[in-house]
Write a protein that binds this DNA or RNA. Structure first.
Lengths: 193, 193
DNA sequence: CCTATTTTAGAACAATCGTTATAAAATATG
DNA sequence: CATATTTTATAACGATTGTTCTAAAATAGG
């Protein structure tokens, strides 16, 4: 019953996400969001709560639509290839983006206010999911001998997560093809037995 | 001639730096800075210009006092050991800090507004200096056979820079001993011939 | 001692911030 | 058709933002 909504939730989150992604939480004003989503302030508050809540939902939306399927696509590949594809995918995305936004999840890691424990926990949890994803691939690769086993899969996954984070940070301030490619080039040496 | 200053420039920059480091540019208000530096708003503007200018000077101060000598201390060591000491130093600092501030330079990389080309350039330049520092060590290590030479020193330096950046990002949201140690543990395998 | 010059002090500025109050518009149900 | 309920629209709110204005305080040079 009652008056129907004039927008689609996902479309609005896509628009809001883009701004938060490019500018961060503080630098994005509510009026920015009103303009880029096309709907009014009252509607935004009514549908998504306050600014912080909208940020959280945008971040969840980003992870769900932007990362989950990208990870799923790699799970079907042979382990060594899965890692290679995953990172070359990150590389391509980083270099193709004319705005050099990097990764919203990584950006969020530094955007979190020091006192907002809940949001930091959410970011940490998503990073843990990526780490687990990498771990599963490496463990499988070590089992079938396609990935070197001189190091524990646990530590290798940690290292890859670190490289991923660094890659995305540098993609923002130094989006240079040679630099980013150099970072991942070393991974082949690192992974092959 | 004229009235003398009642503060030391370096002391003020130390205090300002600490706030910017912990909270970032946007989340640090001018009134925050007035309170933590102990001097008045007019004095801050008179001595350091506007907020952005103060941020730049704080960042330069951080790099000059916090990083330069740390890098210089490594230059005297044998190459393989220099890298090890450098990263274990970063590790220790990351874990010891109860505030988990990470590295101000890396934080700045994501803190830079998309339109502030000059500040981004300054951050990029400082990152390049670190890359050169790492390159010099690796090249020396490859020359004397203490560091593996299957990869170019250029790409290895890039990789290390990436790891460093990732380490510092994760230190903020996931300051877990095992995680950060796992990231650098892999480096020994990566470096030894 | 007087004047020039700089720094300090604290209030005040307009602008923008996130958020909410009020009322009109639009549908579902009775 | 009337009522209940939700969404929309617009304006306004107080608070906080970065910055500046005015005037007092403090020194150096003549």
């Amino acid at each position: 019953m009652a008056r129907p909504r004039e927008f689609e939730e996902d479309t609005v989150l896509d628009a809001a996400l883009e701004r938060f992604w490019a500018q961060g939480f503080d630098a994005t004003s509510m009026r920015d969001l009103i303009e880029c989503t096309g709907l009014t302030g009252a509607s935004l508050y009514n549908a998504f709560g306050d600014k912080r809540s909208l940020y959280r939902k945008s971040l969840d939306h980003y992870v769900q639509r932007g990362m989950r399927d990208r990870m799923a696509r790699c799970r079907d590949l042979p382990p060594a290839q899965a890692i290679a594809v995953f990172f070359s995918d990150v590389l391509r995305r980083s270099l193709e983006d004319p705005q050099h936004k990097g990764c919203m999840l990584i950006n969020a890691a530094l955007d979190v206010p020091p006192d907002d424990a809940e949001l930091r926990q959410a970011v940490a949890e998503n990073l843990r999911a990526i780490e687990s994803f990498l771990y599963a691939i490496i463990a499988a690769g070590q089992a079938d001998g396609t990935i070197r086993a001189t190091l524990s899969a646990t530590d290798m996954a940690r290292h890859l997560l670190g490289v991923l984070a660094g890659l995305r940070v540098l993609a923002r301030v130094r989006p240079e093809k040679e630099l980013l490619e150099g970072i991942v080039a070393s991974l082949q040496d690192f992974l092959t037995p």
